[in-house]
Amino acid sequence: MSDASTQQQVVLTCAQPTGKLHLGNYLGAVRNWTRYLDGYECYFGIVDLHAITVPYVPADLRRDTMECIAQYIACGIDPDKANIFVQSHIIGHTELAWILSCLCPLGQLERMTQFKDKSAKARSEDNQAFIGSGLLQYPVLMAADILLYNADIVPVGEDQKQHLELTRDLAQKFNFTYSETFKVPDLFIPKTGARIMSLQNPTKKMSKSDENQTSTLYITDDEKTIRKKIGSAVTDSDSGPGCVRASDDKPGVTNLLGILGVATGKSVEELEKEFAEASYKDFKDAVADAVAKMLAPVREKYEAVVADKKYLTEVIKRGDDAAQKRAFKMLGKVQRKAGFVAR
Rank of each mutant, 00 (worst) to 15 (best):
A15C: 10
G193S: 09
I316P: 01
L96E: 06
A233V: 07
I219R: 02
F188E: 10
L106A: 13
S239P: 01
Q71D: 04
T225Q: 12
I316A: 01
V154R: 01
S124M: 13
N175T: 08
V305Y: 07
F328R: 15
D282L: 11
K204R: 13
K205V: 04
D117V: 14
Y26E: 00
L141C: 11
V140F: 03
V334E: 02
I90S: 11
D238A: 14
M112S: 12
Y302M: 00
E270K: 06
A122V: 07
R62L: 07
K208Q: 13
L37E: 09
K183C: 05
E95D: 07
F115I: 11
L170E: 10
N201L: 11
A338F: 08
S247I: 01
Y26M: 03
L271V: 07
F44L: 03
N25L: 00
Y178A: 10
A296L: 02
F115M: 12
R111A: 12
V30L: 00
F182T: 00
P17N: 13
I77M: 05
L136E: 12
F328E: 15
W33M: 06
E67Q: 09
I84P: 07
G19D: 14
H89E: 10
A286W: 00
F283K: 02
L331I: 01
A70G: 10
Q7P: 05
T6R: 14
D145L: 00
Y138P: 15
A151F: 00
I77G: 01
F176E: 14
N32W: 04
K118P: 10
K204Q: 15
I73Q: 10
